[in-house]
Design a protein around this nucleic acid. Structure first.
Lengths: 259, 259
DNA sequence: AACGTTAGCAAACACCGTTAACCATAAAGT
DNA sequence: ACTTTATGGTTAACGGTGTTTGCTAACGTT
């Protein structure tokens, strides 16, 4: 085991106040190049089309050299996933931020539409993020922590928007009396996992949130995976219809996309 | 191209009335053995763990010999998927058939629970069936037709149950006036794809059907893929809650699982 | 008995991830 | 200024993959 040399360029945390010794700079550069080429291969040939040897070939290196930057191919993919979550989050907040801060309805609409748009424009990347994961957890890989962080940031976008709806008391909450104890436990576990806490994170709210997320996630998955009945074509009409139903059910007034 | 020798054992259609010349018999046997071993590898090591060489090794053959039975690895996986759809359909109809024929509610509940149960008991197989497909269509492969057939049979199970609900007029249908023309076209396209026709296949009914399917499909996907927020654990409570909500919304009275 | 089909084989090609040993150079320490 | 160490690259190799080609031996049929 050649120590843990895969994570020394820690200087990308916010401001690059540290001068970043020349060596660190070129290391960060090649590290970025690797990820760039890997991403190109990914979107060009799908997952499975990205290989260390192909990356090395494309940048005039040999495959073993890449092990100075990533401890394995899985580790590279882990790092990529973190970047993709960041990009997805950025795209969503961008689209959402184009609307006035007090227009929660518009921001939610924009955010969810941006989510779908990114997924369709980056199918392979979406599969890597939300597709089936063979191994439950690879906490051992260096870049795993970064992934978890970006995941949380991604979830936080929707959580904060939903939270504002709750604050305004616009979300009709279900009767929690019908909830089984197991369901209650599940919801709390989910809240802890997603980092959703506070006075508004009631069981009813969590139930509504999960229901909404499942519907939209499921639809986008079907579209990207080309799964079951909807094997072809652009599912925007159906997505908009679902969006309308889902948002209406939580007290948000739907607006058609402006285009 | 060595002709199309991969599909001569065509004698499994219904009754094996044809004596099936000795040669055909052993061919069918090895063909079955290949699929069996492939399935074992699949469920043991996940997708990606199934390889021609591993299969050949396990049955004391060499990899190229398998090309006498399948035109490629993808073709083998295609054939496997057809078998899995058949198995899934069988399991669902079994569970559903345990209830009286006039108890549509119970049959629907049982069918959907069986769907989830099979998915969880056969994660890798489910991923192959409903997971992301890289290539849109490989109509060229011999076993593609069989897959499509089994897919239709699978869909037909739920379609017929849903159809009976429609006949009984128990499903509250949405106001189709709010449907956009694009949505309408989408729904009709979906109906044609799934083979859902008849007087009950109205636009409203199609809309309801898709909404229900998306919710349950999405939830099972999240559970099997270990995707987004629900990265761990048994999601049965949440599934039952969703089941209750979904079925209640189409006029079916929910019953807790008898266990 | 003769002949064509079929189902296996070995060899080879082009990939893949990963490890080990090695080496030149850049940085750091004395 | 000289030595030492860490770094980032190399080549060679191991074991794995899908797939193609050519060959052979057995089988089924005529």
């Amino acid at each position: 085991m050649p120590k843990d040399t895969t994570f020394p360029a820690r200087c990308e945390t916010g401001a690059a106040s540290v001068p970043m010794s020349r060596r660190m700079r070129i290391r960060a550069a090649t590290l970025a190049e690797i990820k760039t080429i890997a991403r190109n291969l990914l979107s060009a040939h799908g997952p499975g089309g990205v290989s260390l040897r192909a990356i090395a070939r494309e940048m005039g290196m040999t495959a073993p050299a890449l092990y100075r930057y990533f401890s394995s191919l899985d580790d590279l993919l882990l790092a990529l996933r973190a970047e993709f979550f960041a990009e997805l989050s950025a795209q969503i907040t961008d689209a959402s931020g184009r609307l006035p801060a007090d227009d929660v309805d518009g921001r939610l609409l924009a955010a969810l539409r941006a989510f779908r748009s990114w997924a369709l424009a980056n199918r392979a990347e979406f599969i890597l993020l939300f597709g089936p994961r063979d191994e439950p957890f690879t906490t051992t890989e260096p870049h795993c922590a970064a992934l978890q962080h970006e995941k949380q940031r991604f979830a936080a976008i929707f959580l904060s928007l939903f939270n504002r709806l709750l604050e305004e008391g616009r979300v009709p909450l279900p009767d929690t009396a019908s909830f089984s104890p197991e369901l209650r436990a599940q919801l709390h576990l989910f809240a802890r996992d997603a980092g959703f806490a506070g006075a508004n994170a009631t069981e009813g709210a969590l139930r509504v949130l999960t229901a909404c997320w499942v519907r939209l996630y499921g639809l986008v998955c079907m579209e990207v995976f080309r799964s079951m009945p909807f094997t072809v074509g652009d599912l925007e009409p159906l997505f908009e219809a679902e969006l309308c139903d889902v948002l209406t059910s939580i007290g948000v007034r739907y607006r058609a996309p402006h285009s």
